[in-house]
Design a protein around this nucleic acid. Sequence first.
DNA 1: CGCCTGCTTGAACGCTATCAAAAAACGTGG
DNA 2: CCACGTTTTTTGATAGCGTTCAAGCAGGCG
Lengths: 250, 250
Amino acid sequence: MDTKVDTRPSQDCKNCSLRKLSGLRPLSVPELKFVQDFKSGELACDPGMTLIAESAYSPHLYTVLDGWGFRYKTLEDGRRQILNFVVPGDMVGLQGAVLKYMDHSVEALTPMRLCVFERERFFSLFEQHADLAFDVTWIASREECILDEHLLSVGRRSALERSAYLLAFLYYRGLTSGLISKGRAHLPVTQALIADTLGLSIVHTNKTLKKLAARKLVAWKEKGCEILDADGLCAVAQWEPRAEAERPFI
Amino acid sequence: MDTKVDTRPSQDCKNCSLRKLSGLRPLSVPELKFVQDFKSGELACDPGMTLIAESAYSPHLYTVLDGWGFRYKTLEDGRRQILNFVVPGDMVGLQGAVLKYMDHSVEALTPMRLCVFERERFFSLFEQHADLAFDVTWIASREECILDEHLLSVGRRSALERSAYLLAFLYYRGLTSGLISKGRAHLPVTQALIADTLGLSIVHTNKTLKKLAARKLVAWKEKGCEILDADGLCAVAQWEPRAEAERPFI
DNA sequence: CGCCTGCTTGAACGCTATCAAAAAACGTGG
DNA sequence: CCACGTTTTTTGATAGCGTTCAAGCAGGCG
């Protein structure tokens, strides 16, 4: 449960491990230079660690370099709703940087590595690089788009459809962010997490997942979920992933 | 059900009817000048009109000047989920302008008036006015924030809590956007709309709303909902509205 | 007046929650 | 490598919240 901020001089953004991912918008030389200067360090953290706590002020803004995490909110009596998962390329704490308050918490699901920025200097990005500013807005809009689909899912899909949608969704997010590959499609989630994302009880989630397993769409092993047939999941969910053109990454 | 685009020279932004609303960030003279030039017209439309259709390309981007509307998505078999409501000051079609695709539809609930912009020129806003670009990101982030709360609501609140939350939420949105006042708190929504927002059936929505009415929190009249006790609704919902500092408006 | 939309009500069904408990997997320290 | 506590998964039984089906009523509009 410990955290360590890397105090070595910031890693070179040009050789950022994420840059080799296909589907990322390449940065121009001046942009890269700006980002390199904007970056104030790296953060590595262990599973279970809270990156950002609801309503607590954080002076930082992050970009995920590696690992899985998730965003959630809770009601006063403890009921929890997971809002979305974060993967490499996602920004963490953007709401806080823009609105000046955080309305949700973010927790690491696996060991994570993050790129650290100072909120104070966030506005300079808008002043100096219109392209990067547009990218930030793009990222915020895509998050909105994902939330729209989740809301449709929780509001109108049955338990079986919902589960299928979520697993397919996580599969594609894992693929496009390089966390998994078609051969190694293992999602590091517990059934309790799935339940809190779908708005279902743990017991019923378990029974529903068993049905998907019976259809050979997924398998539960090694404390996580193996995706066996993503197309099958999509069919059950009445959903298909959007083929994304080029994704910005800051 | 007809639409009319106002072909007269664009109304003066400086005297925009919305500018007198309290809580809006005032624009500088150059910003105002830019917005005035950016604006390409006004659109007036009647209730029931679809402003933007899912997956259809629209060359426009709007800001709401007057009236209520709502965003929604549907599944192939017709099940519908309302994602959020739009009120004066909100942008409509931002997702489309940034991501290049629309994933939801937008429909007018009451007669609406909108300010029309050209998507093509949207990027120039980022190039020329960092402050306005930041405002756009602010608007996107706040939408995300609202969706987070809706998701928590649909996922984890009971039918009664959910209804109370939604009505309180609409009440405060109406207030801050000048559509209603404390004396005249009438929301122009049908129970079918409420049902599609909460992810409930119409029948059960009706029974749930009756319970709120029995507690004297709301009253159903004139084809809409009268808010009698917003604090009471908040208490039922375990929710309280956030006191917003200054809201940008483009 | 008659149709259409929106609100209301009752009854029966069923999906999902809750309760309870056990089995399995995992992590840790001896 | 084993023992033990903890977390996660699994299963069965029961209860209840919310859905679906089926009418009936009220108000607005041509």
